[in-house]
Nucleic acid binder design. Structure first.
Lengths: 128, 128
DNA sequence: GTAATCCTTGACGTCGGCGTCAGGGCAACA
DNA sequence: TGTTGCCCTGACGCCGACGTCAAGGATTAC
């Protein structure tokens, strides 16, 4: 299949596929006319990349998974390098989620502090 | 005080201050020599901006807080526009945190699936 | 006096993941 | 034969928040 069909079947664009190729992530064979040619295996690789991208992995992080698939494994995450990325990502996510929750809590407090009608009973009462 | 001192006192750089000025966020008076001149109030504004940036607010989102301070309020978040940003940010954070937790869970499952020695008792047993 | 340190403006560079032309080739169908 | 529709490469654009360099003027320290 050619680039347009692959892009359509993976729900992406030809530009994206050329970009992946330029990054060495998804090289393509070429037909006699110079057109890129892909097969079902490429579609699988591409879907793996896209799934991880949706998870927030950057392109480089998807590389071990793609190479794992190309090495013949039925799943891209059944290789040590992929697992290492998973573990690193888990740690990153835990850290990030923690930070975001801390920020969320801080904003929640500030919002409540300003929003509340400041109950008279908590003002100390002396100014009454 | 001049730009270098303000930057140092706020733990940022002169480039950042010029950038904020170019965005209309932190305008500066000028001395006879053309040098930017700042006072303690500017330091307060700058610290407000930096705090919000640390929280993950983008520059435009800090504007209401800065304007609130400049309007004379002792706190940048005691104005309706600031509260609106707070509320929007809370919703964004909740949404983002939820997505990240879902991704974290998914990765956790995949990691466990591949990592586990696949207990024999869960394989169905027929192949034994 | 002069060297070191500050300040000025302007403008290009960075990062990631592409979008969007521009200019041209190849193929298939009427 | 022309038109439509795919494909090609190359290259600039985008976003946000600055970093960094260049070329020069002002100030300050000695």
């Amino acid at each position: 299949m050619r680039i347009g069909e692959l892009a359509a079947r993976a729900g992406t664009t030809t530009r994206t596929l050329r970009y992946y190729e330029s990054r060495g992530l998804l090289p393509a064979r070429r037909g006699g006319n110079g057109y890129r040619t892909y097969d079902e295996a490429d579609l699988k690789l591409l879907r793996q990349i896209r799934t991880l991208q949706d998870f927030g992995f950057d392109l480089e992080e998807t590389r071990p998974f793609v190479e794992c698939l190309r090495a013949g494994h039925p799943e891209g995450d059944s290789c040590p390098a992929s697992l290492a990325v998973y573990r690193r990502k888990l740690a990153e996510l835990d850290s990030l989620i923690g930070e975001l929750q801390a920020v969320r809590a801080e904003i929640g407090v500030r919002l409540a502090t300003v929003e509340e009608p400041t109950p008279l009973c908590e003002l100390g009462g002396s100014e009454l």
